[in-house]
Simulated scan of single mutants.
Amino acid sequence: MDLSDVSEELALIEGQINDIFRALSNGFQKLEKIKDPNRRSRQLEELTDKMRECKRLIKEFERALKEEESQNTHNTNRMLNETKQSMIKELNSFVALKKQHASENKRIDLFDGPGGGDVFAEENVQLASSMTNEQLIDSGHRMMDETDQAIERSKQVVEDTINVGAETAAALKAQTEQMSRIVNELDSIHFSMKRASQLVKELGRQVATDRCIMAMLFLIVIGVVAIIIVKLVNPNNKDIADIPGLPPPASRKLL
């Protein structure tokens, strides 16, 4: 391509892409000579990073091409589009080569999409500038379907979140009521313990009073018993009055 017909930005990007293609070519030649599986895996990872960078540059090339499309001639735009498609095909060839080596090395191909196709497979990465109206419409319909599905999933997530929030609120309310009942029960227990303490004090005072009365009665009984004993031992002792219930002394019996 005649670089004099394109801008410096496009020429710079194309030069960077060509440098990466040369590095990829040399890297795959070097990979064929490596026997150690670990070294082969590291080499494949490095080549994969270079292919990702190349893919980014091709998209940058397309962006710059669209910006300058109105300024270029028809032939220049056609030549630039052909250059872009050529770069995509060359990158796809390196991707296929990388898949082959990855399969031989029994490594999972992380660079491929979930469907296992090429990174720049025609149905997945066909650029908008090269699509027909029908393809653009189909692509738009797919994007709308995916958007609708994403919205439905978002609605489901919101609904689940609301349900979880309601359940959490109900649980918190039940726990609050339970805590309130526990506080009321603790107040009742505290009052009962206070009342019991008062009763214990009153009972202690009553027991102390009963003991004093019993002690006085015991002293009275001891006194009476002592008087009885002395009277029986010395019946002539006039200092001791007659005790009710005992017979009088013999000298005082009626004639």
Rank of each mutant, 00 (worst) to 15 (best):
residue 151 I to T: 07
residue 159 E to F: 03
residue 136 L to C: 03
residue 132 T to G: 06
residue 128 A to T: 11
residue 162 I to F: 04
residue 144 M to S: 08
residue 128 A to H: 10
residue 134 E to A: 12
residue 158 V to P: 01
residue 160 D to E: 15
residue 141 H to L: 14
residue 163 N to R: 03
residue 162 I to S: 01
residue 150 A to M: 08
residue 133 N to E: 15
residue 129 S to H: 15
residue 147 T to D: 07
residue 161 T to P: 04
residue 135 Q to S: 06
residue 160 D to M: 08
residue 133 N to C: 06
residue 131 M to S: 05
residue 130 S to K: 11
residue 164 V to S: 00
residue 149 Q to Y: 08
residue 163 N to F: 02
residue 165 G to F: 01
residue 163 N to T: 02
residue 162 I to E: 07
residue 158 V to N: 10
residue 160 D to G: 04
residue 145 D to H: 05
residue 135 Q to V: 05
residue 156 Q to L: 08
residue 127 L to K: 10
residue 165 G to M: 06
residue 142 R to C: 01
residue 144 M to I: 13
residue 166 A to M: 11
residue 139 S to V: 07
residue 134 E to Q: 13
residue 157 V to T: 13
residue 164 V to E: 02
residue 131 M to N: 07
residue 160 D to W: 02
residue 130 S to L: 13
residue 138 D to W: 08
residue 130 S to C: 05
residue 132 T to M: 06
residue 134 E to L: 12
residue 144 M to Q: 10
residue 142 R to G: 02
residue 129 S to A: 15
residue 143 M to N: 12
residue 166 A to E: 14
residue 145 D to Q: 13
residue 164 V to D: 01
residue 132 T to A: 06
residue 146 E to K: 08
residue 167 E to W: 00
residue 155 K to R: 15
residue 156 Q to R: 12
residue 130 S to Y: 06
residue 159 E to Q: 10
residue 128 A to N: 14
residue 161 T to S: 10
residue 143 M to S: 12
residue 161 T to G: 04
residue 148 D to Y: 12
residue 158 V to W: 04
residue 140 G to P: 02
residue 147 T to K: 10
residue 168 T to W: 03
residue 151 I to P: 00
residue 138 D to I: 09
residue 158 V to F: 09
residue 128 A to V: 14
residue 159 E to T: 06
residue 131 M to Q: 14
residue 138 D to A: 10
residue 162 I to C: 00
residue 145 D to W: 05
residue 136 L to G: 01
residue 143 M to Y: 08
residue 166 A to H: 13
residue 163 N to E: 02
residue 139 S to W: 07
residue 129 S to V: 15
residue 147 T to V: 04
residue 149 Q to I: 09
residue 144 M to C: 06
residue 156 Q to F: 03
residue 159 E to M: 04
residue 127 L to E: 15
residue 129 S to C: 12
residue 151 I to E: 10
residue 138 D to T: 10
residue 154 S to E: 15
residue 143 M to L: 12
residue 143 M to T: 09
residue 140 G to M: 14
residue 136 L to H: 05
residue 127 L to N: 09
residue 155 K to F: 13
residue 150 A to G: 04
residue 165 G to L: 06
residue 154 S to T: 12
residue 150 A to P: 02
residue 135 Q to H: 07
residue 152 E to N: 11
residue 141 H to C: 07
residue 139 S to K: 14
residue 130 S to W: 06
residue 155 K to M: 14
residue 168 T to I: 00
residue 133 N to L: 11
residue 153 R to N: 14
residue 152 E to D: 14
residue 133 N to M: 11
residue 152 E to Q: 14
